[in-house]
């Protein structure tokens, strides 16, 4: 099975503005043609970037999407060969749609009226 697995750090119906203050995540399997094959929400026991990193590595996540990601976690994930698309501001669905179509980039602002 090809494609990739992504984790979007979320807060309510938005991409979490702080990776280190996140206790929820949306995990998606995205096929090569951009179809979202599966999606599941994960709730962590606490807001912990360490737990999130452990989860990412333990579950074969290829891409992490979040708002602010502090440099130490950013570098840690990058060294672990995980793509990090950070500084994303917006609601979950537009972010997922862009991610699935391969158009999501760090720094994207996706709130209505602000899409780049």
């Amino acid at each position: 099975m090809t494609g990739h697995r992504a984790l979007i750090a979320i807060r309510g119906n938005e991409v979490a503005w702080r990776f280190d203050r996140t206790a929820e995540a949306l995990v998606c399997d995205i096929a090569e043609d951009g179809t979202v094959r599966s999606r599941s929400e994960i709730i962590f026991a606490r807001q912990s970037p360490e737990d999130l990193c452990d989860y990412v590595l333990a579950h074969g996540i290829d891409t992490v999407v979040a708002g602010a990601v502090e440099e130490e976690y950013y570098h840690y994930l990058r060294y672990k060969r995980v793509d990090v698309i950070d500084n994303v501001a917006g609601e979950i669905e537009p972010a997922l749609a862009r991610l699935a179509s391969g158009r999501l980039a760090s720094g994207d602002i996706l709130f209505p009226g602000k899409e780049g």
Binding site: A68, V69, E70, E71, Y74, D86, N87, G107
Partner: peptide, 8 residues
């Protein structure tokens, strides 16, 4: 705060 340069 964590800024866009990933600095806390």
């Amino acid at each position: 705060i964590v800024n866009r340069g990933r600095r806390r």
